[in-house]
């Protein structure tokens, strides 16, 4: 029974996403509301260019390439890399995972290529630090205090290293934009960073910035599924209150 529900929910999610994608493809507009952190992402690159200082982008220790959050972060990286290429700004990308490193190198290379600046692409700037959590934290922290980036993007899955990085960034006066699906680290980012994308906002940011139809359709589909979730809870509560023996809501 549990498996059937999961399969049905997958089909519903697929149909809703397919439907919104079709609507957008046919010209129907879906307007995303303004999210401060997303607007700041665009401004942060310009700031670094004006100051002549690099941008540091890191996806955190908690994720691997198999995590959807890392994919969303890659989408944002692709846009940020295009802008850094346009503005002739240095982009530094340290990571704890060699597979993420390989993927990020490809993403950034193609972004530089798209804006005709492939000659400025430096693969050495996208590098593996270490697979140890605090080795990674110490390495990135050192990079922050020495290179003094103008803007820091902490977008991905973070664990305890979140505050080490965010506080080091604050100490060098960087504008910091963080976003994570790690619920515990959100509180630290909120306190230490200038802008924070809470959980799902990270996925929305990737749709908003990339302007990609399919990604935008996904964000719209998420809104529709959110309404379905609220409807489920409303019906479930009514059922639990008036028909206490019913248990269909126990998924």
């Amino acid at each position: 029974m549990d498996s059937l529900i999961t399969i049905l929910a997958t089909i519903v999610a697929g149909l809703v996403t397919f439907w919104t994608a079709r609507l957008i493809h046919r010209g129907r507009k879906y307007h995303l509301r303004e999210i401060a952190g997303i607007k700041a992402l665009e401004d942060a690159v310009g700031r670094a260019a004006e100051m002549g200082r690099p941008i540091l982008y890191t996806p955190g220790y908690g994720g691997d390439i198999q995590r959807p959050t890392t994919i969303a972060s890659m989408n944002i990286l692709s846009v940020v890399a295009e802008k850094t290429a346009e503005y002739n700004c240095e982009l530094i990308y340290p990571t704890h995972d060699p597979i993420i490193m390989a993927t990020a190198q490809e993403v950034v290379r193609e972004s530089y290529s798209r804006v005709g600046k492939i000659d400025r692409f430096n693969p050495d700037n996208i590098y593996y630090v270490s697979s140890s959590q605090f080795g990674y934290a110490a390495g990135v922290e050192g990079e922050i205090v020495r290179k003094k980036p103008a803007s820091i993007f902490l977008l991905g899955t973070f664990e305890a290293e979140s505050l080490i990085l965010a506080e080091s960034g604050a100490a060098v006066g960087a504008v910091q934009i963080a976003g994570t699906d790690s619920t515990i680290q959100l509180a630290f980012f909120l306190i230490a960073c200038d802008y924070t994308l809470f959980g799902e906002e990270l996925f929305a940011a990737s749709g908003y910035l990339s302007g990609n139809e399919a990604t935008l359709a996904s964000v719209w589909a998420q809104d529709i599924m959110r309404i379905l979730c609220v409807s489920f809870v409303a019906l479930g509560i009514l059922s639990a209150l008036f028909f206490p023996e019913s248990s269909w809501w126990k998924l």
Partner: peptide, 14 residues
């Protein structure tokens, strides 16, 4: 927050 992350992850995975 968890549901939001779940929804974002589901659509990204698809």
């Amino acid at each position: 927050v968890l549901i939001g992350i779940g929804l974002g992850s589901v659509t990204t995975s698809l």
